[in-house]
Amino acid sequence: MVWVGNQTLISHFIFLGLFTHSPLHIFLFSITMIMFLMALSGNGLMILLINVSPHLHTPMYFFLSWLSLMDLMLISTIVPRMAVDFLMGHGSISFTGCGLQILFFLTLTGGECFLLAFMAYDRYVAISNPLRYSVVMSRRVCWLMVSGSWLFGLVDGLIQAVFTLSFPYCGSQEIDHFFCDVPAVLKLACADTSLYETMIYVCCILMLLLPFSVISASYLKILVAVLCMRSAEGRQKAFATCSSHMAVVSLFYGAAMITYMRPQTYHSSKQDKVVSVFYTMITPMLNPLIYSLRNKEVARALKQLLRRCLCSRGQG
């Protein structure tokens, strides 16, 4: 604690957490850890396969490798600390640690928002203009898109982390959440945060609505292109792929919009925690399954990698 005038400013926060130690919550905690391990293994495997398999060195898989890295870092930023807090029976975080968690979390979620938009555009170019695909989606363009995703995410994370921690916190230390989420932290501020909430809306329009609009427009044009296909089998395959992609994208963006685009007065701690699970745990687990691991090219790369490992072991 730090005394300023008649107020005691907070030097650390205490998490109330996602679970209690009831039998039901212990079961849900176990499910969460299984999801965490699946996300780690799925995304880690995707990064490995894309890097070691030459036939996966295409723009689509280039973006997928970065998506897997972001998901890997995102879930690792949240879940291990939450698990340790649950197992120890209590959880606290320093003021600086909370700021760093906000920075990493928003950098990764913001970066993923733009990366998903660039991935949708990549698929649109591949389907609607295949002859110019290699020119439009050159290696330089792909690197610029990935760099832009990280840059936009970092700027958003820095702005929100600095502004959130610039408020005085002199009341309760208890954050009714399992990580330092901006809306949950702001509830403890001893100042008027209405102007900052307006700034968050502006950031969300840029970081959520703009990329989501690009994704929606890209998949709408893809849908039109698919309807023009003569092959019924090709149409069915494209529909199945696009619908699964849009389901995961909608889950990620929808949960983030519910959390960050509602006025502070409409936030419920219990609802915020449940919604946060979708974009911090569920989508990082689902992305490698939906985007890649059921893909025939990825399956072939996995078989080749396993064969190579078995051969090297046999020779050893």
Score class of each variant (00 low, 15 high):
Ala161Arg: 03
Lys296Thr: 14
Arg139Trp: 13
Leu100Arg: 01
Thr198Cys: 09
Pro54Glu: 04
Ser138Ile: 07
Leu186Pro: 02
Cys311Lys: 10
Leu223Val: 14
Thr283Glu: 01
Gly314Val: 13
Val141Ser: 08
Gly153Ser: 07
Ala255His: 04
Phe13Arg: 00
Thr32Lys: 10
Asp85Ile: 00
Val226Ser: 03
Gln304Tyr: 13
Thr96Asp: 12
Ala161Val: 01
Cys242Val: 12
Arg307Ala: 14
Cys180Ile: 01
Ser22Cys: 01
Val79Met: 08
Ala301Lys: 00
Met119Glu: 04
Gly17Glu: 00
Met119Asp: 03
Ser244Cys: 08
Ile258Trp: 09
Ile222Leu: 04
Phe179Val: 04
Thr193Ser: 06
Val277Tyr: 14
Gly254His: 00
Ser30Thr: 15
Phe86Gln: 06
Trp66Asp: 01
Leu40Ile: 13
Glu197Arg: 10
Ser166Glu: 03
Lys187Cys: 07
Leu289Thr: 09
Ser94Leu: 04
Gly97Asp: 04
Ile75Arg: 01
Leu108Ala: 01
Val214Ser: 05
Arg132His: 14
Pro183Trp: 00
Leu74Glu: 06
Thr58Val: 06
Leu74Cys: 03
Leu116Ile: 06
Arg313Tyr: 09
Thr8Asn: 15
His90Asp: 11
Lys237Pro: 08
Leu74His: 06
Ser268Leu: 15
Phe114Asn: 11
Thr107Asn: 08
Tyr260Leu: 11
Ser53Pro: 02
Val146Pro: 01
Ile205Ser: 07
Val136Asp: 08
Ala301Thr: 02
Gly110Asp: 05
Leu37Arg: 05
His57Asn: 06
Ala299Tyr: 06
Leu72Met: 05
Cys204Gln: 09
Thr77Ala: 15
Ile215Lys: 08
Ala39Cys: 04
Gln264Glu: 07
Thr77Cys: 12
Ala117Lys: 04
Tyr124Cys: 11
Ala161Gln: 05
Leu310Asp: 08
Gln315Asp: 12
Ala255Val: 02
Ser128Gly: 09
Gln160Thr: 12
Gln264Pro: 01
Tyr124Pro: 10
Tyr61Gly: 03
Val146Ile: 11
His90Thr: 10
Ile290Tyr: 06
Gly99Trp: 02
Ser76Trp: 03
Trp3Asp: 12
Gly316Pro: 03
Cys170Gly: 10
Arg308Leu: 14
Met33Cys: 11
Ile14Ala: 13
Thr8Gly: 15
Gln315Lys: 12
Cys311His: 15
Ser172Asp: 15
Pro288Ile: 05
Cys180Val: 01
Met207Pro: 03
Ala238Arg: 04
Arg81Pro: 08
Ile78Val: 09
Val182Cys: 00
Leu116Met: 14
Met73Cys: 14
Arg140His: 10
Val214His: 13
Ser11Phe: 03
Ile31Tyr: 02
Phe114Lys: 06
Gly97Pro: 02
Tyr169Gln: 02
Ile205Gly: 07
Met46Ser: 12
Met1Phe: 13
Leu223Trp: 12
Ile50Glu: 01
Ala126His: 04
Val185Ala: 02
Leu223Ile: 10
Phe152Thr: 13
Ile34Met: 11
Asn287His: 08
His245Asp: 15
Ser147Ile: 14
Tyr201Gln: 13
Ser138Asp: 09
Ser292Thr: 15
Tyr291Asn: 08
Phe15Ser: 00
Asp176Ala: 07
Phe36Thr: 01
Val226Lys: 05
Met33Lys: 06
